[in-house]
Amino acid sequence: MESLSFSFFLTTTIKPHPLLSTTKIKRFSCSMKEASAYSYQKFVQFALDQTKLSTSHLIPSYLQDDFSTLKAMDGKTDLKMCSYQAPKIRLLRNLSIEQSDGMQVMDFAVFPEAEFDLPIFCANFFTSANTNIVVLDLNPLHDVINETHYKQKYYKSLIPLGLKYAELLPWGGKLTSESLQFFSPIVIWSKFSSSHEKHDILFSAFKDYYKAWLNLMNQATEETDVSQISLNREAQHRYLTWRAQKDPGYNILKRLIGETLAKDVVKKFLFNGVNELGNKTFLDYFPEYECGDGSINEKRSIVGKSFENRPWDARGVFVDDIFS
């Protein structure tokens, strides 16, 4: 989300060579070979295996034909993508970035069909030789700060799980108030030094959170009210519109693979649906970001308030009144 996506992690890590090399998109499967001790490949494989156990109709997305494997212009960085869909899943997709020096990134997400008000599963992980920066959450489709019903429906039973990992993976520092509207009370936002122990804890958290999401998916019933489906669709479109505009991934990807491919990866793959689920613009949803000349304010935060510590208490109640 905002500055916490994979692309943020790369801003000081990847320095692409200015000379363009041949870039080719190839077919790629999420099934991966054994890799280094800190590889995120097993995370993706676990998610795929568990999803297949929950639905017998997980099939490759049409996006797989256009987004698979890219070689960055620096000749040292690989971008691998895969995508799937299922009856309740509009899109399950992953982007992995691997650099020859051992740096790894995973941007994994699962978006529900509009007939279901399920949260959006989100995992953004970065690892270098010494550092890990992670975000793991079941991003709420609707407001969990002011809408008690939605929070009770999906997060009440998950608060103990969130508290468990809040102890093991402590809060990672300042988080802008704008970002919080897209996070749940169980979000894991953490920074820590690389170690086998921490990596194992993160893998455990990923497995528990993903199984929790699948359990919610299995219990979810299809919405038949047209007005509610429309609300779900707009909520997801609003989320995607924010991510596509404010996530700095575009600038990083532009340096890695060129402007044209970067636009395609951001809007057609990472945040697929921003062009299909609705017609509203970023400023329609977030008019406070409009500049005097009608352009979009590029600042990370215009509210200017950030949270150094976790802003939810042990019951999952938001402890600041900024959104009330």
Rank of each mutant, 00 (worst) to 15 (best):
G316Q: 08
K299P: 09
R255D: 14
Q85G: 03
I133D: 05
K164V: 14
F9H: 10
S5H: 11
I120L: 07
S83A: 15
Y285H: 03
G249N: 07
L202Y: 06
D49Q: 15
V317W: 03
F8C: 02
V110G: 07
Q152Y: 09
Y62M: 08
E290Y: 05
T127P: 00
R238W: 06
L283I: 08
H142W: 15
Y38Q: 02
S306P: 00
A109I: 04
N132S: 08
K153P: 01
L79V: 04
S21I: 05
D247S: 10
T51M: 14
P18R: 04
A109N: 06
A314I: 13
Q228T: 09
S157A: 13
E115N: 11
F67V: 00
F46V: 07
K254V: 07
A205V: 01
F282P: 00
W242I: 05
D65A: 14
N130K: 10
P311L: 10
A235G: 09
E288I: 06
K26C: 08
D293P: 06
F126Y: 12
L261S: 04
P16E: 11
R90T: 00
V187D: 03
C82N: 04
T69I: 09
D225I: 07
D320E: 13
T13I: 04
N279Q: 14
P60T: 05
L169K: 05
I159R: 11
T55V: 03
H199K: 02
Q219Y: 10
C122D: 15
C82S: 10
D321N: 15
Y210S: 01
G102I: 03
A244P: 02
L58V: 06
Q50V: 00
Y165Q: 04
S29T: 13
F28S: 07
K268L: 14
A72L: 00
G75V: 10
K263L: 13
Q236D: 08
F182R: 02
T22D: 02
N275E: 07
G294W: 14
S230W: 08
F126E: 01
V319D: 08
T12V: 06
I120N: 02
S230F: 09
F6A: 05
W213D: 01
T23L: 09
V105Y: 04
S7H: 05
L175T: 03
T281A: 07
T281C: 05
Y84W: 06
E113A: 09
K263T: 06
N130H: 11
S3Y: 13
